[in-house]
Nucleic acid binder design. Structure first.
Length: 154
DNA sequence: GCCAACGTTGGC
DNA sequence: GCCAACGTTGGC
């Protein structure tokens, strides 16, 4: 089992939205970034644990835990001309974009903020993309060590 | 709202 | 294949 971090804007789709969904599960569609695509298509497996991160908000940080509910499959919204993330270059016979389903697990007892993670200067977080400057990946791998360390801050 | 950082596009 | 222009992300 692997660990991940997925970003979402709470104003658009936050962890409370996820928890309120039927089955508390949501397809993670609309991702149009090749690195993130590769992780969803090739690496993320059902049962993998996910830090749910709120970005672009007053207090960016990890707010909860989710899990991968379904492995990568073609992102059908890329085929729909009326969809926001329509991509005419994605061919249904050779899909360019993939998504996984994400299921709510729980809220953290408190938000572990980006500022806190940046400030704590722990060896466990060396190389963690989230705290590297200029990082824009919306999905990133988390090592078991990083996972344990961050959860230990809760 | 600003702006740095980054990814993508497209001309050449 | 280079690189300038452009669009987006996301912290602040």
């Amino acid at each position: 089992m692997a660990y991940w971090l997925m970003k979402s804007e709470p104003d658009v789709f936050g962890i409370d939205h996820l928890a309120a969904r039927p089955e508390q599960t949501e397809p993670w569609d609309g991702v149009r970034n090749y690195q993130a695509r590769n992780m969803m298509r090739d690496e993320m497996k059902p049962g993998d644990q996910v830090f749910f991160y709120h970005s672009n908000c007053a207090e960016p940080g990890i707010v909860g835990i989710a899990e991968v509910a379904r492995e990568g499959c073609p992102d059908h919204t890329a085929f729909d001309p009326d969809a926001k993330y329509f991509d005419p270059k994605s061919d249904p016979d050779n899909p360019r974009w993939y998504m996984v389903d994400v299921r709510y697990v729980r809220h953290l007892k408190r938000t572990i903020t980006l500022a806190e993670l940046k400030a704590c200067d722990a060896a466990a977080l060396d190389g963690f993309p989230l705290v590297r400057r200029g990082n824009r990946l919306s999905i990133m791998p988390v090592t078991p060590r990083q996972w344990e360390f961050i959860l230990g801050l809760e």
